[in-house]
């Protein structure tokens, strides 16, 4: 491949970690790496994008409060119609990234490969890796039609490393009218971030699942994560049940974590959850059911009642400090 684009997302402190991971990977796939960004602050992230390998950043500009899916995909599609042709577009597997990928796919009439956790060039085509069946199998796929290939890549699939390049050249794109498809607008943002280390950055993550039995028992998870200077996570089941906010969710549609230690408490280990935490360096699981899939990935598994083990663990840790 000659040219790869990366959809760059901006967080509170510049480009998101996943954006930098994708730029780092893109450098190994093609000599020319360029980014596409949106929002009012593209100029301020040009240095970080450049440092990670982007020579240019195409700036969609401020899209107001609109959801980015339609306007950002529209700007990328317009750029391609004007003759700029990348061989691949790497898109972060985030809420907004998925929206852009779906829109772009339909606009360009190109399929998408999602849940990508690996990308490697082989015999002139790019081979993707996808974990399936709870991560017990790895599927390799590739595009067979005309490019560009659209790849939606999961967080922490690659390490991010700066290459020491100069700031990316900012190229402002003409405004795109996304029409009725771009009419969804954000009225108000709500941040539910908890105190302590961030879930996807913490060295220790303590997560709770359905086995806790009730929303009240989640307090044990929070106390334990606090004692271990870690972050509190959750399975989709209890997030969907309304016990804890979505921002705590670990898994396919939540956050991907790779801490030094992951403690899964009362979590059975559905595919949805496993793909988000299987990369943890050490996994401890507590579950009543010896047959729970979580034990297949655990380094230490305690077959027992979380309501007995967790309070004892909290007491033991308290008595040490």
């Amino acid at each position: 491949m000659d040219r790869v684009w990366v959809l760059a997302e901006t967080g509170e402190q510049g480009p998101t970690a996943l954006t930098l991971e994708l730029l780092t990977k893109a450098r190994t796939l093609a000599p020319a790496v360029e980014a596409v960004a949106w929002g009012p602050g593209t100029a301020s992230i040009a240095a970080a994008l450049g440092e990670h390998g982007a020579s240019r950043v195409y700036d969609v500009g401020d899209i107001g409060g609109r959801l980015p899916g339609a306007p950002v995909a529209g700007a990328i599609a317009a750029l391609m119609r004007d003759g700029e042709q990348p061989d691949a577009v790497l898109i972060p597997a985030s809420y907004d990234g998925r929206d852009v990928a779906g829109r772009l796919s339909a606009m360009l009439d190109r399929p998408v490969l999602t849940n990508v956790t690996g990308l490697a060039e082989q015999d002139g085509s790019v081979l993707t890796e996808h974990p399936i069946f709870g991560g017990t199998k790895i599927l390799h796929a590739r595009f067979t039609g005309e490019g560009p290939g659209i790849y939606v890549v999961r967080a922490k699939s690659f390490a991010s490393e700066p290459a020491g390049g100069a700031a990316a050249e900012v190229i402002a794109l003409p405004p795109v009218d996304a029409g009725p498809a771009g009419a969804a607008t954000i009225v108000q943002r709500h941040v539910e971030e908890a105190s302590g280390p961030k879930l996807d950055e913490a060295a220790v993550v303590v997560s709770g699942g359905r086995g806790l039995g009730s929303a009240e028992s989640y307090a044990l998870i929070e106390e334990l994560s606090h004692l271990l200077h870690g972050a509190a996570g959750a399975s989709r089941a209890i997030v969907d049940a309304g016990w804890v906010p979505y921002s705590h969710q670990v898994g396919q549609t939540g956050k991907t974590v790779k801490p030094t230690v992951y403690l899964a408490c009362g979590i059975s280990g559905a595919t949805q959850h496993l793909v988000g935490m299987k990369g943890s360096k050490n996994i401890v699981a507590i579950n009543k059911d010896r047959e729970a899939p979580i034990f297949s990935v655990a380094d230490l598994g305690i077959v027992g009642d979380v309501h007995k083990v967790l309070p004892a663990l909290v007491e033991a840790l308290k008595s040490r400090s």
């Binding site: 959801l67 969804a184 607008t185 954000i186 009225v187 108000q188 943002r189 709500h190 539910e192 921002s247």
Partner: peptide, 8 residues
């Protein structure tokens, strides 16, 4: 959203 939720 990653951090909470948006009213849209």
């Amino acid at each position: 959203t990653e951090a909470g939720y948006d009213e849209v």
